[in-house]
């Protein structure tokens, strides 16, 4: 059982990193949102498996929250937003696919090296989990840095948060209160960002953040 536990958890967390990589090179917003939904789904599965493996029923709640909000509600709402904004056909690129992927690989390697060394005497399950979680967080940050469109930055932020949840559930579970409050804070951040998106759009006819920079007189 122990071996299976570890293998499945490893598989799910590894797939989460893989999906993060897939996110990294999506240049169409629809595709990006679909991949994000997949990301959240894999997270929900991973959390559910942790709940089963650790015999911690409250993690099922976390998994359901992840499934309902992150895999269904948020992607659907974002879909609607980009349709209403009329940017669902936009293509964006700041860094090319090759460099982005290379950077991502470097980050994953870095997080592996750091995490495996720091947590040398921890439970192997938690070690792997933490290393993967850090990779997901770093990839999310990388995505926020390399994207220019506000919607894809939101997606980067959300996948970053997924990495945090993964880390928290791997380490012998966290209290439900913390999970709920994190979920709510993300939701509120999401709402605020959504409102800002519309405000930006109203004013500049675009959600390309370069328009904001141009407005402030920035030189690039």
């Amino acid at each position: 059982m122990r071996g299976l536990n570890f293998d499945v958890a490893h598989l799910l967390a590894g797939s989460l990193v893989l999906v993060s990589f897939v996110q990294l090179y999506q240049d169409r917003l629809y595709a990006l949102l679909n991949i994000y939904a997949l990301h959240a789904l894999v997270l929900a599965l991973s959390v559910a498996w942790q709940a089963f493996a650790q015999d911690a029923p409250h993690l099922y709640v976390t998994a359901i929250i992840a499934l309902v909000f992150k895999a269904i509600v948020i992607p659907v709402v974002l879909h609607r937003i980009i349709v209403r904004l009329g940017i669902h056909r936009e293509i964006e690129k700041v860094v090319g696919v090759g460099p982005a992927m290379l950077l991502g690989i470097g980050l994953v390697a870095l997080s592996m090296v750091v995490m495996l060394r720091v947590t040398a005497d921890a439970d192997p399950l938690a070690r792997e989990d933490l290393a993967f979680a850090l990779s997901v967080v770093l990839l999310g940050l990388l995505m926020m840095v390399t994207r220019r469109n506000a919607v894809s930055q939101v997606v980067g932020f959300m996948s970053l948060e997924n990495g945090l949840v993964l880390a928290a559930t791997g380490a012998k579970g966290m209290p439900l209160v913390v999970e709920i409050s994190v979920a709510f804070s993300v939701l509120i951040a999401f709402i605020v960002i959504g409102i800002f998106l519309f405000r930006i759009r109203e004013r500049f006819d675009s959600v390309d953040l370069q328009a904001l920079d141009r407005f402030r007189g920035e030189r690039r």
Binding site: L141, L142, M144, V145, R148, L209, E218
Partner: peptide
């Protein structure tokens, strides 16, 4: 700085 540049700094 722009938001993205701040993010890059943090990153």
């Amino acid at each position: 700085f722009s938001i993205r540049r701040y993010l890059s700094l943090v990153f």
